[in-house]
Amino acid sequence: DNLVIALHSYEPSHDGDLGFEKGEQLRILEQSGEWWKAQSLTTGQEGFIPFNFVAKA
């Protein structure tokens, strides 16, 4: 599955970004460039995340 774990917390800075906490698990929905579309397994919310803040779970 496309699961990743957050290496750092991220505060959203643009509409459509997904904020998350360090250690949170996310499911990657789309990989494109440096911003990936993801869904939080904690909150169920979707949005874009910086790819370098996460690692394969």
Rank of each mutant, 00 (worst) to 15 (best):
S13M: 15
S13A: 13
A6L: 04
V4G: 05
D15I: 13
E11Q: 14
L41N: 03
G47W: 05
L7P: 04
Q25N: 08
G23V: 01
S40I: 05
I49P: 03
G33V: 03
F51Q: 11
G47K: 01
V4H: 08
L3I: 14
W35G: 06
L18I: 08
F20K: 00
S9N: 10
G47R: 01
L41C: 12
G19D: 01
S32N: 14
Y10P: 02
L18Y: 04
E21N: 10
I5Y: 11
Q25G: 07
G16K: 08
S13R: 15
W35A: 05
F53H: 07
L7C: 12
P50D: 05
S32K: 13
F53T: 05
L26V: 02
F51V: 08
P50C: 12
L18V: 03
G19C: 07
H8E: 11
P12V: 07
L3Y: 11
H14P: 02
W36Y: 09
G33Q: 04
W35E: 04
G47C: 06
Q31I: 08
L7T: 08
N52T: 11
Y10V: 06
Q25V: 15
F48W: 15
F48M: 12
Y10A: 02
E30L: 08
S9P: 07
G33Y: 03
I28P: 00
I28C: 04
S40D: 01
D17A: 13
P50R: 07
R27S: 03
I49Q: 01
G16M: 08
L41M: 11
G44V: 02
E46S: 13
F51K: 15
F20P: 00
W35L: 08
N52A: 10
A6N: 01
G16I: 06
E30N: 09
Q25R: 13
S40K: 11
S32I: 13
D17F: 15
L29T: 06
L7Y: 04
D1W: 14
L29M: 07
A6K: 01
P50H: 08
N2L: 14
S9R: 13
I5P: 00
L29G: 01
F20A: 01
L3D: 04
F51W: 14
E46L: 12
H8W: 14
E24C: 06
I49D: 03
F51C: 15
W36V: 09
K56N: 10
S32G: 11
K37N: 04
L18H: 02
W35Q: 07
N52D: 12
P12K: 08
A57Y: 14
H14L: 08
L41T: 07
F20L: 04
G44F: 08
Q39R: 12
T42L: 14
H8I: 11
V54Q: 03
A57D: 10
H14F: 10
F53R: 05
V4P: 00
Y10H: 06
N52I: 08
A38H: 01
G33L: 03
Q31W: 13
G33P: 03
N2F: 15
G19K: 12
N52G: 09
L26M: 08
L18P: 01
G19P: 09
W35M: 12
E46F: 13
Y10I: 04
E21I: 13
S9I: 04
D1T: 09
E34C: 15
N2I: 14
A6S: 04
G19T: 06
R27M: 10
K37L: 15
H14M: 10
Q25E: 09
A6M: 06
I28R: 01
L26I: 05
E24F: 04
Q39D: 00
N2E: 09
G33C: 07
I28A: 00
S13C: 15
F20W: 02
E46H: 08
P50E: 03
L29V: 08
A55E: 12
H14I: 08
A57E: 11
S9Y: 07
V54Y: 04
V4E: 01
E21K: 14
D1H: 11
E24R: 00
A57V: 14
D17R: 10
S13Y: 12
E34N: 13
G19L: 05
Y10L: 05
T43S: 10
L26W: 02
F48G: 02
L26D: 00
A38Q: 00
I28W: 02
E34I: 14
K37Y: 15
W35D: 01
G23Y: 06
F48L: 11
K22D: 03
L3C: 07
A6T: 07
V54A: 03
K22L: 07
L7F: 06
L29E: 01
G23Q: 02
I49H: 01
W36M: 07
D17M: 14
T42Y: 09
K56L: 13
G19Q: 08
Q39T: 07
S40R: 10
D15S: 11
H14G: 12
I28D: 01
E30H: 08
R27P: 00
Y10W: 12
P12W: 06
H8M: 14
L18T: 01
K56A: 13
F20T: 01
G44Y: 07
E11D: 09
K37M: 12
G47F: 06
L3W: 09
H14R: 15
K56R: 11
D17V: 09
N52H: 12
L18W: 05
N2P: 06
I5K: 04
A57F: 14
E21T: 13
A55T: 13
K37W: 15
L7H: 05
K56I: 13
E21V: 14
A57G: 10
D15T: 11
Q31K: 13
E30P: 01
I49N: 02
Q45A: 11
L7V: 09
G16A: 07
S9Q: 07
G19V: 05
D17S: 09
G16C: 13
D15K: 12
E11N: 12
Q45T: 06
Y10R: 08
I28Q: 00
G16N: 09
Q45R: 14
G23F: 06
D17Q: 15
F51M: 13
D17K: 09
S40C: 06
A38D: 00
A6Y: 03
L18A: 02
E24S: 04
F48H: 06
A38C: 06
P12F: 05
E24M: 04
D15N: 11
P12N: 04
W35K: 12
Q39L: 11
